[in-house]
């Protein structure tokens, strides 16, 4: 297997605030290959978005990447000077936000904005640039792209705006797209349309994609692999099917149990008790310990990220389902 396009090892991004150090990301490791969608799943405050911003180099004070390694196509992102990082951003790594108006300027026409995004990185003639923008809009399934180019953002619906934002991200045919909750604000039918386009793009263009979301159901159908984040850490990574079928980490199990469609109608949902801990004041050891049904004394020690099954990594002293998988030695404390 070729080297992964992006490798993040033990990333730590902390925010040094008045009230204390917020360990927004506190030990996140994952990797993405070309032609692959990695879903990063976590609840609010789990640090999944900050992990995305850290890769993009968009963490502003009081936040700082304090530790860890991020390698993109052999380039050490942490050691990269600002100037080169800017060159990389938008051209080789692009980002799509939950709110497309984060990317779009409401007072400029779409073509102006797209051409600007193009000429920021490459020298290109006006006619060529326009043609390229039109192609990008067509690629994300916008009907009549030539006409829509001269429209203003407010003339688009929410779903269309998100398509335009994705088209802008695609302009330079980046190697990696980081998408932060891009379909959360959209309706089901519109979300499906966008998921459809994204799925096509990733597989036909051999791009890598980080799909950050709180909704396990969305990535279940889209991502090749999933990384589950909890309280700043990646607690489990592995191929989507295996994680959904047989979660190893009790938190993943709880998350899956919480999704209504999985339980029998009318029965109680298998909820996770309690609430996520404050990133200001994480519990010692495993952060999930206070909510975990399987917690023992040993969980007071922080579990290391280890390969629990082939291709499946996790941070847990008591991973589930391992006995059934025929590797009982790992399950024992």
């Amino acid at each position: 297997m070729a080297d992964p396009l992006l490798v993040v090892r033990d990333l730590r991004t902390h925010f040094f605030t008045r009230t204390g150090v917020v360990k927004a990301v506190d030990g996140a490791s994952f990797s993405v290959n070309r032609g692959e969608v990695l879903g990063i799943v976590g609840e609010s405050g789990s640090g999944k978005s900050i992990a995305g911003f850290s890769i993009m180099g968009l963490v502003d004070p009081p936040g700082r990447v304090v530790d860890g390694a991020m390698t993109f196509d052999g380039i050490d992102l942490r050691a990269l000077p600002d100037e080169e990082m800017r060159g990389l951003r938008g051209r080789r790594i692009a980002m799509v936000f939950q709110d497309p108006m984060m990317t779009l300027n409401p007072v400029l026409r779409i073509d102006t904005q797209m051409i600007e995004a193009l000429t920021a990185h490459i020298r290109i003639g006006k006619a060529d640039a326009r043609a390229r923008c039109r192609d990008a809009l067509g690629m994300v399934g916008i009907p009549a792209p030539e006409e829509r180019l001269s429209a203003y953002p407010h003339q688009f619906s929410g779903g269309m705006r998100q398509r335009v934002a994705i088209a802008i991200a695609l302009l330079h045919e980046p190697d990696l797209i980081i998408a932060d909750e891009p379909t959360t604000a959209l309706d089901v039918t519109i979300q499906a349309q966008i998921l459809y386009e994204v799925q096509n793009l990733v597989h036909t263009r051999d791009m890598a994609m980080l799909w950050i979301t709180h909704d396990l159901s969305v990535v279940a159908g889209l991502a090749d692999r999933i990384a589950v984040m909890y309280a700043g850490r990646v607690v489990e990574t592995g191929p989507t099917e295996e994680i959904v079928e047989r979660p190893l980490h009790p938190y993943t199990q709880g998350l899956i149990g919480s999704v209504p469609s999985r339980s029998k109608r009318g029965s109680k949902l298998r909820q996770i008790p309690g609430m996520a801990p404050s990133p200001l004041n994480l519990p010692e050891g495993c952060a999930f310990r206070p909510r975990c049904a399987y917690a023992t004394e040993r969980c007071g020690q922080s579990p290391a990220d280890r390969e629990l099954l082939p291709g499946r990594w996790g941070r847990c002293h008591h991973p589930l389902h391992l006995a059934a998988a025929g590797r009982p030695e790992l399950a024992k404390p």
Partner: peptide, 22 residues
């Protein structure tokens, strides 16, 4: 709607959206 709702089911799905805006 039922065809497009994301479900927590193993296996990659191919999304086949209905076209058009609301």
């Amino acid at each position: 709607l039922l065809a497009e709702v994301p479900r927590l089911e193993p296996g990659r799905r191919i999304f086949k959206p209905i076209t058009g805006e609301i």
